[in-house]
Design a protein around this nucleic acid. Structure first.
Lengths: 226, 226
DNA sequence: CCAAAAGTGTTCCTAGTACACCCATGT
DNA sequence: ACATGGGTGTACTAGGAACACTTTTGG
């Protein structure tokens, strides 16, 4: 019967992005065990499976949120996870057959600073400066690349940028996020027009206070939760 | 060790769409065994996994193509598969823990007619007329809905419509595909402008022959493979 | 006064939308 | 002749790209 077929292990891997120091960062964990001991890898782990009559273990999303919390301390209310896709090359893990489900995530910079220091073996790496020089464990370089593409597409199509800025932000701060994530410059004027439209549409509203960045004070805004 | 954790079974499920009779169809298979014996389900099956030193079985994409061929006779050169995402609710299969990877696919109508009749228990169903009245096996209704959304997004963003028409087609035939897939009418004039742009950009070229649909003969086109 | 950053205005172009209209053909 | 479907033209609008310009502030 089908129950008797050999089964693959299934893991979830998190591609946790943030932006600080005007730079796109991804959270990596130094592996302590073989395989790839000493290499850096995406945070993640095995999906808990049971096959008892009353429990089957956790769903995929639940596993992703659990791993996120275990490895970064970030809670589901702080970070939104959305599945990217599955990776299942037979030899992607040298030990045995492991398929993994990738979950890109965006965390706000003020949460990121604590997240990266929670675990001693976790660190933020510059996606463009550092990661290309590294040799990530497993096929994690490929997963990271796929996750980045997905997020780059989505930020133009859906209001997800607010997950990469603090509670309030100026026009230029939000623009900087777009520029950092996409890796291309945005015309300040044209970005301001989009920004104004978002405000007109009720996605963004003025927040009290001004941002003092050096010269002229910038108006501060926040996203509307409603 | 991690190798000893209970593992989920992993399957691939295919959401094979086509368009004929001006109607969007999906291929379903009547289940012969429990669970859901007698119900209709998406074609699919277990990913073959081995854990011998020299073989690990097949990759996810390979499994999807194999199932496609087994259940419809369609070959990888005829149909393009692209992974959607994984579904892994713990109790989505009443027997035991099964996670599945969904693969939407588009097949050209002239290939669809043979595919649906290859297996006695396979049939094309109208996505909008018939499927909503049916109770699909497992969470296949949800998978189908997700696949449809994905394809509807993609057809506006990428040139994938040619996978739903025959080797040659008229403007209105292609427009009918868009209308059928999206479920909304397209202005013939505006669609013609997009069509002309595609021709200018080299995506489409004139093909010899005319289509005789009743009144005036329509120019016939084909997609450029280059 | 000048540099730097915030913010405004203008022009051009592409593409989507709505709608009016002409053309060729079989019945 | 006329209904039918193929095909063309026009006016309007939203929004992206490029770029010049003004305003506010600190040094």
């Amino acid at each position: 019967m089908s129950e008797q077929y050999p089964r693959p292990s299934v893991t979830v891997d998190l591609v946790v992005f943030t932006v600080f120091d005007s730079d796109l960062k991804v959270l990596l964990i130094e592996r302590g065990e073989e395989p790839f001991a000493g290499s850096w890898a995406l945070p993640g782990g095995f999906v808990r499976v049971e096959n008892t009559p009353d429990s089957r273990g956790e769903g995929l999303d639940a596993a992703a949120y659990r791993e996120l919390q275990e490895e970064t301390g970030l809670t589901p209310s702080q970070v939104h996870l959305e599945q990217l896709c599955a990776f299942g090359r037979p030899f992607r893990d040298p030990r045995f057959r492991v398929s993994t489900i990738a979950y890109p995530a965006l965390v706000q910079p003020h949460l990121a600073l604590t997240a990266g220091t929670d675990a001693a073996d976790a660190r933020w790496f510059s996606v463009r400066q550092e990661v290309p020089e590294m040799s990530l464990a497993f096929d994690h370089a490929q997963i990271l690349a796929a996750a980045l593409s997905r997020v780059q597409e989505q930020i133009e199509a859906r209001p997800i940028a607010f997950r990469l800025v603090g509670p309030t932000f100026s026009k230029s701060e939000l623009r900087a996020v777009y520029e950092t994530l996409r890796g291309v410059p945005y015309d300040p004027s044209n970005f301001a027009r989009r920004f104004t439209r978002w405000e007109r549409e009720g996605m963004i509203e003025k927040a009290p206070g001004k941002r003092i960045t050096g010269a002229r004070r910038a108006q501060v805004y926040r996203f509307r939760t409603a």
